[in-house]
Design a protein around this nucleic acid. Sequence first.
DNA 1: AAGGAGCGCAACCGCGTATCT
DNA 2: AAGATACGCGGTTGCGCTCCT
Length: 383
Amino acid sequence: MFVLYSKIQTVYTFSKYGVYNIQIRRVPRDYVGRYGVSRHSDYRVIIRGLPFSASWRDLKDHMRKARDVCFAEVFRDSEGGEKKRINMGRQPCCDKNGVKKGPWSAEEDKKLINFILNNGQCCWRSLPKLAGLLRCGKSCRLRWTNYLRPDLKRGLLSDYEEKMVIDLHARLGNRWSKIASHLPGRTDNEIKNHWNTHIKKKLKKMGIDPITHKPITSEQPNIEQQPTKKQPISQQEQQTPTESTITETKVETKQEENKNMGTTTIITAQSQTSSGRQENKNIEVNNNGFYIDEVPLMSPSEILVPSESTTPPTSSTSSSQSSNMILQDLQFLQSFDNNWQCDFNMSTSWANDDFSSTLDYLLNDDSDMNNTISLDWSQVLEV
DNA sequence: AAGGAGCGCAACCGCGTATCT
DNA sequence: AAGATACGCGGTTGCGCTCCT
């Protein structure tokens, strides 16, 4: 994890909870008195996203949240040392000039798949650069989520899925991502397209207004007004229920109650088959809203630390558990350090033994220290 | 056979929100 | 606190294919 470098070494780590970085650096003499650097902090650890005054507890919380770290990016500072504060402002998502648009080639797909399978799915901004793609991060995200993801279903929506879409649309309006979350293996884009190209017409043919889900009457004005996410839910829910309904109202309440308990809820979807028969289907949904029978996306930890027992604990309050999570982060980053094909110069003053002792310190210590990080770590890392 | 229209879908665009310095 | 930028979502576009005349 701790790639130590004589001038400055920055390790960025990314997780779905955000971006932080860990820097261990020798503070240049002319830095003392600036940027929160005090005279006695020859070495500092700065956790991006945390203030300088963050406590050890804050650091641990941060690490715990970021336990699904999936890849890291190493930057080396320019020769001659650091003259200005780094990382000021966010990086642009891509170099707009050098970015390729339009359909993806097989070669690009291959690069993207390989990269994500090896490194996990996160930080779209940095991904194109790291994967060697001349694409915007946004474009990569779309390509992956809508087309390349291994758990995607292919082909037309089944009758049952279509029914679900209609039901959900009646309740949720054009909130395609919400609708898609109820249909394993289907993307919001796919559902949106299917709605616009197939279902809309079908409903119109059946004499049902695809917007209001009510029978079309002759005096009904053809106004393109539909329930959108901007429309209050309560207002939407006053709409007449359709012939087939999903009894989810009480489920949502239940889910709210069970938010942190890792429980499973059953949704009963009631639909009518083509033969007119009423059909009930029970669908198990966990408290995150994922379907139990859904093929899960590969989690970054599974990809990166495959041989370890990396199942994260459900509770995040135990100190030993948080220690394990930190361990996971460190294990990952350590392996990253070993494998990263980057030509940094390891400072001779930072021998591996020093590094190991730092790691040991981190992993064995499980007490909450209320001092600031800079003080603690300056002691830890003191040479 | 040719060309125009329609269709389906992948990809892009723009906006709102979250997050970072 | 303000400004910049990433991310996610819904709307829209544009291209390639098929169908129709």
